[in-house]
Write a protein that binds this DNA or RNA. Sequence first.
DNA 1: TATGAATGAGCCTTCATTCAT
DNA 2: CATGAATGAAGGCTCATTCAT
Lengths: 186, 186, 186, 186
Amino acid sequence: MTDSKPMRADARRNRARILAAAEEVFAERGASASTEEVAARAGVAIGTVFRHFPTKRDLLAAIMKDLRRRLIEKAEALIAGGDPATAFFEYFTFLVGSSAGAGAVVSLLADEGTPIEPGEQIMALDHVFARLLDAAREAGTVRADVRLDEVMALLTAVTHGALAAGWPDDLRHRTVNLLLDAFRPR
Amino acid sequence: MTDSKPMRADARRNRARILAAAEEVFAERGASASTEEVAARAGVAIGTVFRHFPTKRDLLAAIMKDLRRRLIEKAEALIAGGDPATAFFEYFTFLVGSSAGAGAVVSLLADEGTPIEPGEQIMALDHVFARLLDAAREAGTVRADVRLDEVMALLTAVTHGALAAGWPDDLRHRTVNLLLDAFRPR
Amino acid sequence: MTDSKPMRADARRNRARILAAAEEVFAERGASASTEEVAARAGVAIGTVFRHFPTKRDLLAAIMKDLRRRLIEKAEALIAGGDPATAFFEYFTFLVGSSAGAGAVVSLLADEGTPIEPGEQIMALDHVFARLLDAAREAGTVRADVRLDEVMALLTAVTHGALAAGWPDDLRHRTVNLLLDAFRPR
Amino acid sequence: MTDSKPMRADARRNRARILAAAEEVFAERGASASTEEVAARAGVAIGTVFRHFPTKRDLLAAIMKDLRRRLIEKAEALIAGGDPATAFFEYFTFLVGSSAGAGAVVSLLADEGTPIEPGEQIMALDHVFARLLDAAREAGTVRADVRLDEVMALLTAVTHGALAAGWPDDLRHRTVNLLLDAFRPR
DNA sequence: TATGAATGAGCCTTCATTCAT
DNA sequence: CATGAATGAAGGCTCATTCAT
């Protein structure tokens, strides 16, 4: 979009490394982990991190963006190839279990006041989710009166909760299953 | 128990002020807000805060303790005077709506590694919650297979989520109602 | 001297207690120990310490003065009743061994820049020491060319060294004996 | 040994500056002088000091190490090229006069409880001193019964005393000469 | 007078960000 | 572009000193 120059090969490799390292570090230590540690884990110097992401906030935002992208891809795969009646539930479950990395990052939404994302990406995730939800509704496996924002709200809450509180797998499974029941018609 | 001396009037007033200021500040800015700001909001010098709470962690712990106490009192009132069939639902709803201050603080449980509370207080909250849950189960308004830890997990998640994401009242209501349905027998 | 009022009995008792506590505390923890701890050890409130000694420095000075007084008394006893030929050596040895409390305090002379004493007291100690030294010189047990300032310098150095470095008794004995030999005529 | 990278030129320059400034500052103000002042004197920002010496204690330790190194070098030069009969006396005199910077720092060994040095360095200094002492003993200029620990004890005491009390040159000379006589056979 | 709470300057340390190499 | 040293604003905490009780 705004890519004036194509970016050198090693630069792109560094960018990817940093992103990966950052996701790990922030997931382990929370959003207050130091940028220095990210650099170390990525095997680059601190200056390099700031060249790619002028601000710590930018780095965090990039992680979120990256994560969203992967989640959207997964959703699209489910939309394309899954069973509409169950895809929604599968996806919800998958998200809570998988977002290890993201959850920690999300937490900074609470720590800092200002939102961190371009919005457009959120819309995209909302969009695929809406499609899964609609499909399930049509298939009759989700109540007609369940709205998207409620689903997203619960998703966010449980995702973060699972990570922040470190729910063991067993608890997470039971909790999510219980919650999903709320969506089912009675 | 350990109150050797009753504590001077002005000291008690300051302690209360600090606690109130801290609850506000941490709710607004998250647990990483500075102690200095708490002092400013309370209208005292920084030293005074540290005289009452030798450590930032102590201050956070005190807030939690204070909050728990209030929550437990509310629960006991409901146990004593409410309708067993609905008290559980009322309480859950109340908690999510009321814990403005606490949620933010709870988040530090994730930020820092070390637990922040005496434990006994947590037990106390769990305990009253268990009683409300049991009563509801007996009254047949809650499914027999719902376990306490699942309830607490969801409560924590939704409470924090509501605060961190700043759900508007309307969304919060719908979300909580939806969630509570998950507890009901079908 | 400047005592306008005779000072109430309990006040004098407090003053003494504080002095004693301070000597202990500073000897154990060094001059950087907190005034609060002195108060605690003395069993009084911090305000009381500052009422008697408006400044930490004043407190330190008072300890020194007190110590000097005791040392001078000891010297006078030796001058009055001891053997002139050996009194000097006895006294020197006694000082190094006894000044446990003072040494730590002396160290603050190095820590802070400004001298701590009225001077007149130092003179007094110098004075009795001069008398012991003269007596020994006349008795022929000390070299004629040994001057008072050298003796005082070595005394201070060794006293402080013994304390600061925590010389065991054995080492201190040998060291002092060796040093005293330097004063003897050959 | 652990020098993986040679260290940038400006970094080395700063490190040296900081070390020099610290030696001055601590010598003047004692070990309790602020790191901020060291930074100011060195003409760098406070962060730079902490980058080179992560802890104030580390800075102090570095000064000591540096000083010891210089002292040991001097001793080795004397062992190699000096007159065994007098080298010991020369060195002792030199140490007392030169250690302006160190003495103050040494005092922190007393102030804080924990030792500050690798130990091996102390051994090294002891070692060269032992050789000088042995040589003098063999040359007959030092009494046979003088032990190394006594010598070191007196050295430390006098060195620190000279600095802390600010002995004028004249007094220092006379005192040291008097003391050295104690080592000579009679 | 004694008490002990309040004050606030100052200390050590961390870390996002900048900039010379 | 990458490197990593330098910067300097906070932040948590301590402690001598003041002052209301």
